[in-house]
Nucleic acid binder design. Structure first.
Lengths: 247, 247
DNA sequence: CGGCTACTTGATCCACTTCAAAGTACGTGG
DNA sequence: CCACGTACTTTGAAGTGGATCAAGTAGCCG
């Protein structure tokens, strides 16, 4: 596990490294003083590489740090005793993982890399300490947590009130937006997760996900080749979301 | 709207008033100094009464404060353009409402009183300022937010992976635990929400909720009389959660 | 090339929804 | 205090979206 100390931190380096990070809004742009930069130095403890299919943490692990995804992507899931899995989210670069652990000082879900990935380890005690001194960091962190709560409400809406094709359309639109925000194509991207993982996230079986993809392709909304997706008619997809179930 | 200033704050009074509050863990027990108490004075801005079926806030409202439920209970929900409603949670005394607003400085859901209720208004700017000075308050607040995220994951599990009777059993067990934590009977309680609201929360139609209640009654797990519930076999309910769907 | 994992597609089934009709509690005004 | 209206709940019967079961296919990697 390469320790942070190994990689000398420079302001330039940070700006590059963290340019897509969810925490950037408070770390960098707001004219941090030299002293602030030194504190930031204390904030990010280390980087950690996680290979595909490896756990970043498991349910039950002691909580010490939250993580910012630098490269790659993750899924978080909850397991029931009988083996049922619920994927609670997919995380891409710049997104924060691990907030579930603050509540009880132990993680309540699993975080697994979908591809070879790297995270910034942010010891939570450090974050709390520094955010007591830098108000903008404190506020930004609160926004990150709140955003997670709002996102979760959206997933509840999806799981509780939408039909299969609406759920998949919402998922594709969301992925497209997140790729766009990272400077990738809005129309063409590569999904890192399996049909089963998408299904688990959307509360559907993998066959249903597959059939919905096929239906979208028939209707010329998208082109599917395994995990490679090309969106041909984003408005058509969005239209699926604004219709009543039986109209 | 009675302002806080109207009700003189005393340490005794606070201990009584906040004895069931989620924020109590940091406000009260940790031997706050006289100075801390004065700061607390600045934290809780006012109390606000909300009548049954009235909104505490609506989606789109500017975010300024979070709320601690003093008496009564609330639901929070998200509405789709076509009228579909997803209830995202039910809140009882001591629980915090409004965390969704931090993210964008505007609320993203509606909060509606299920009965005549009263909340403590906590201006969020105050909370951030004071929590920069009192570390235990800061940490407690982070725990409250994290707990909300963990709870949301549980609801996703419920909506995405459980069948109707499992969902209702999980709901009843959860309600029972929360009533117990408030000093009420674990076995007998009055639901403040309608079958339709329970159904919306659980991703089911009201008829399905009603049928599941009836089935539980047939199986002597509970007694139902409209909104009055008596749990006769809590272990039987719990057993419903640990079984495979087809076993 | 062989073996594996992931994906697609068809046929059948069933849990939950939808539609419909009563029944019950409750508040209000006469 | 009763009559009536309203909102909520229960229950039945029929319909359907997605699950399940079952092949078969495509891509990947050692």
């Amino acid at each position: 596990m390469p320790n942070r100390a190994v990689v000398p931190i420079t302001v330039e380096g940070l700006k590059t490294a963290c340019s897509q990070c969810n925490l950037q809004e408070l770390c960098l742009p707001y004219g941090m003083s030299e002293g602030d930069i030194n504190q930031l130095d204390a904030l990010v403890g280390a980087r950690r590489k996680v290979k595909r299919h490896q756990h970043l943490y498991r349910a039950g692990d002691t909580f010490e740090s939250i993580y910012a995804v630098r490269t790659g992507s993750f899924k978080t899931d909850v397991l029931l005793e009988d083996g049922r899995e619920q994927v609670t989210g997919f995380q891409m670069s710049g997104e924060i993982i691990g907030l579930d652990g603050i509540s009880t000082d132990a993680h309540s879900c699993n975080a697994v890399a979908l591809e070879d990935s790297e995270v910034c380890v942010i010891p939570f005690a450090n974050l709390e300490e520094i955010s007591r001194e830098i108000g903008s960091l404190q506020h930004q962190f609160h926004k990150v947590m709140s955003r997670e709560i709002v996102r979760d409400h959206g997933v509840m809406m999806l799981l509780g009130s939408m039909r299969a094709e609406e759920r998949l359309a919402a998922f594709l639109i969301n992925m497209s937006q997140r790729f766009t925000a990272r400077g990738f194509s809005a129309a063409e991207f590569h999904l890192r997760m399996t049909r089963e993982e998408i299904g688990s996230y959307l509360g559907l079986k993998l066959e249903t996900v597959s059939r919905a993809f096929s239906r979208f392709q028939e209707n010329e909304l998208i082109t599917v080749q395994q995990k490679h997706i090309r969106i041909r008619d984003i408005d058509g997809l969005k239209a699926l979301l604004s219709h009543l179930p039986n109209v």
